[in-house]
Amino acid sequence: MMRREFIRDAFGFATASLMAEAAYGAVVQKPGKFSGSSSGAPPMAASSTIDVAEFHRMRQFADLPMGRIAYVERGHGPVALFLHGFPLNGYQWRGALERLSGHRRCIAADFMGLGYSEVAADADVSSAAQVKMLAALLDHLKIDEVDLVANDSGGMIAQLFGVHHGSRVRSLLITNCDVDTNSPPPAFLPVINLAKQPGVADKFVAPQLADKNFARTDKGIGVAYTHPAQLTDATIDCYFAPLVSSAARKEQFSRYLLGFDANPLVPIREELKAFNKPTRIVWATADVFFGVEWAEWLDRTLPGSCGVRRLEDTKLFFPEEMPEVIAEEAVKLWGV
């Protein structure tokens, strides 16, 4: 199988958790407001750039029962909440925040166990705990309702959040992620199994921090990017440094991975069929984890689906390299 060959040939377990490329693709969608590839609105100019230094400067913390949850925000008005993938953090959404902060108060939080959120060494970092954390964060910030934008494992959490806190969701823009029985995807199982042994953070993260050129190869995080040479040292540090910053963080990283072992989505299948908020699905077709058939499953299952946009020859983390696509689709979905 292609997936097994991919895992074997590209840094073993490391590549199984980090897939992305980016290119502009075709559109497959239901008739209606998304029937064209352009919103008709003038192009959105990016606001001031969010580089790593700016991302660190913007960071705020919410003191919640779960710990100090890191988040960044930009803009004003109705809130859009961005949910990042594994093993990234809110920095994944910097380009989207630049482009969409003129339309929304954009918030990107770091999940517990990833990024810069600070929680107890033995904190629950499961998907169910992440949903509770997000609800607590919104309570803390006095936010009643959000537009969700999600990728990868963040998409799984978005589905759980939509089922358990549907009244707080105004719309959902969802990209490649776990769906129904494809959670965890078969190609990701070697990573989860490795986390059952000691030292997964030292084996997966530390080598890429020590040798950034190695990180840019197809045996490291570079396999996730169309243009890995453009992946800066600072970006690699931003994603990976916090994961190995202490023994406790390394342990949390391991437990975060183990949390993927059980499928949380099949139990909510029937409830998901009742999630009728406007939903746009944007899917990379060359992703080895989340095939386009799962976008089609979501399209059939979610009564509020506005259709599927396919991005040909792209992979999992396209939102980072193609923030203009996220911005275009969000503006159409939000009707602004």
Results as ranks from 00 to 15, higher is better:
residue 6 F to D: 09
residue 7 I to S: 13
residue 7 I to A: 15
residue 11 F to Q: 06
residue 16 A to V: 10
residue 17 S to Y: 14
residue 18 L to W: 11
residue 26 A to G: 02
residue 29 Q to M: 07
residue 31 P to K: 12
residue 36 G to E: 15
residue 36 G to F: 13
residue 40 G to V: 06
residue 44 M to C: 03
residue 46 A to F: 05
residue 48 S to P: 10
residue 49 T to R: 14
residue 52 V to R: 07
residue 55 F to N: 01
residue 55 F to Q: 01
residue 60 Q to L: 07
residue 63 D to A: 15
residue 64 L to H: 04
residue 68 R to Q: 08
residue 71 Y to H: 04
residue 77 G to C: 01
residue 79 V to N: 02
residue 81 L to V: 10
residue 83 L to D: 04
residue 91 Y to F: 15
residue 92 Q to K: 00
residue 93 W to K: 02
residue 95 G to I: 03
residue 96 A to S: 14
residue 97 L to F: 11
residue 101 S to V: 05
residue 101 S to M: 06
residue 103 H to S: 09
residue 103 H to I: 03
residue 105 R to E: 01
residue 105 R to F: 01
residue 106 C to E: 06
residue 107 I to N: 00
residue 107 I to D: 00
residue 113 G to Y: 05
residue 115 G to L: 11
residue 117 S to V: 06
residue 122 D to V: 09
residue 124 D to S: 08
residue 127 S to C: 01
residue 128 A to E: 11
residue 132 K to W: 00
residue 138 L to S: 02
residue 139 D to W: 10
residue 140 H to K: 08
residue 143 I to K: 08
residue 147 D to K: 03
residue 156 M to S: 06
residue 161 F to G: 00
residue 162 G to C: 15
residue 162 G to Y: 02
residue 164 H to P: 00
residue 165 H to G: 05
residue 173 L to P: 12
residue 174 I to G: 03
residue 182 N to L: 09
residue 183 S to V: 02
residue 187 A to I: 14
residue 190 P to V: 05
residue 193 N to Y: 02
residue 194 L to S: 11
residue 202 D to A: 13
residue 203 K to G: 07
residue 204 F to A: 05
residue 206 A to H: 07
residue 207 P to A: 12
residue 208 Q to H: 10
residue 214 F to Y: 15
residue 216 R to G: 10
residue 217 T to Q: 14
residue 218 D to Y: 13
residue 228 P to I: 05
residue 229 A to H: 14
residue 233 D to R: 04
residue 236 I to F: 11
residue 237 D to N: 15
residue 237 D to R: 07
residue 240 F to M: 12
residue 240 F to H: 07
residue 243 L to S: 09
residue 245 S to A: 15
residue 247 A to W: 00
residue 255 R to L: 11
residue 259 G to D: 10
residue 260 F to S: 08
residue 264 P to F: 03
residue 269 R to K: 12
residue 273 K to M: 13
residue 274 A to I: 02
residue 275 F to H: 01
residue 279 T to A: 13
residue 279 T to S: 11
residue 280 R to H: 09
residue 282 V to F: 00
residue 284 A to I: 01
residue 287 D to I: 04
residue 296 E to L: 13
residue 296 E to S: 05
residue 298 L to V: 04
residue 300 R to G: 10
residue 300 R to F: 07
residue 303 P to R: 10
residue 303 P to L: 07
residue 313 D to V: 03
residue 316 L to C: 12
residue 317 F to V: 04
residue 320 E to K: 00
residue 335 G to E: 14
